[in-house]
Computed example of a mutant assay.
Amino acid sequence: MSSSSSSSSLLSPYGWDADWEDAFAPYAAEGLVPGRVVRVDRGLCDLVTPEGLVRADTEFVVPRDPMKVVCTGDWAAVDPEGHDPRYVRTLLPRRTAFLRSTSSKRSEAQVLAANVDHALIAVSLGLDLDLGRVERFIALAWGSGAQPVLVLTKADLVPDPATLGHLVADAEESAPGVQVLAVSAETGEGLDVLGAVLAGGTSVLLGQSGAGKSTLANALRGQDGTSAQAVQATRDRDGKGRHTTTTRDLLPMPGERGGGVLIDTPGLRGVGLWDAEEGLGQAFSEIEALAGECRFHDCAHETEPGCAVLAAIEDGSLPERRLDSYRKLLRENQRLAARTDARLRSEQKQLFKQRSALGRHMMERKRGGGRHSGW
């Protein structure tokens, strides 16, 4: 069996395909081996390769741009067996990346998962639905290039079918174009449908602590609470859980559910927007469509005559809460874009100063050298 066919057969359950093989061809010619990052931990990462699971150092791919650091879900070119230590030499270009802004004042982005087909937004039905948070997650998911799926977990805590139906309807209204599924890891409700949606691809599981992500991950993988993804009880007083997942882990899905892989992530306290204009447009697609019917192309949807958005609010076809949420997220995204531009301008100015200082230093050395040679 050739090394190429060996890679395909062993890595295909993790998403390896002909396009990845073509992208990797130049590195194969250098004797490197392909691998998918299943976990990153303090400058080291675990990768699944044709040789099995290996650990490699990421020293050679530590860029200035935080969006290009090694992340769970990345495909990489790794030193072959026999190298000690082994290094990740480069990353293959990402197809998708789920990004959020960090809490840093530098206005930088953090990559939560790479090369993802589905972004599962887990929201617990054990608490009141926070539709604003749902919309924020959905916008980030659309912006990542992945297909969002809204998963309402702990459906067993809502025994009344009518109440559950209303909650699903509210969620669907806040996530146009997104499949909404009510599931229960306890009873198995909805798991077969969700498993069929995810079959064969790469999915990332996102949400707050206490949303039941690890329990759901175990259930989808056909495992119980004592399996690889530890589960801790939810606090009674506020329905919130503890951080049971502390790293982003790529987990294989069972073949009977169609295969594929699932990236489980730690609970997210904050999900700041990052370059989310396109994602917001998709998350609030009905508002974008209405805006196209306004009399003025630059309508702010406040007091302008002929505003189709305000008319929809008046006739009840558009909830005012949706417009308020849209405006809030747009303002946040615009503020972040302004800070990011300011940071980039500052870095470019600093780089220019450094280059100018180096240029002056070199000129002074040349002048000094010329005088010395004439003595």
Rank of each mutant, 00 (worst) to 15 (best):
V38H: 00
V38E: 03
R39W: 08
R39A: 10
R39F: 05
V40W: 09
R42L: 13
R42C: 14
R42N: 15
G43P: 07
G43R: 11
G43E: 12
L47T: 01
L47R: 05
V48Y: 13
T49A: 09
T49K: 02
G52H: 06
G52K: 04
L53D: 05
L53V: 14
V54N: 00
R55P: 04
A56D: 00
A56P: 00
D57Y: 10
T58L: 14
F60N: 01
F60L: 01
V62E: 03
M67G: 13
M67S: 12
K68E: 15
V70L: 03
T72N: 05
A76D: 00
A76C: 14
V78H: 03
D79A: 00
P80Y: 02
E81W: 08
R86V: 00
Y87W: 14
L91W: 07
L92H: 01
R94G: 04
R94C: 05
R94S: 07
A97G: 06
L99N: 01
S103T: 14
S103H: 07
K105Y: 10
K105N: 05
E108C: 08
A109Q: 09
Q110I: 04
V111D: 05
V111Q: 02
V111Y: 06
L112Y: 09
L112W: 12
N115D: 14
N115V: 05
N115Q: 06
V116G: 01
V116I: 15
D117V: 07
H118S: 07
H118M: 08
L120E: 04
A122M: 08
S124Q: 08
G126L: 11
G126P: 11
L127H: 13
D128V: 09
L129N: 03
L129V: 03
E135V: 06
E135L: 06
E135G: 12
R136G: 06
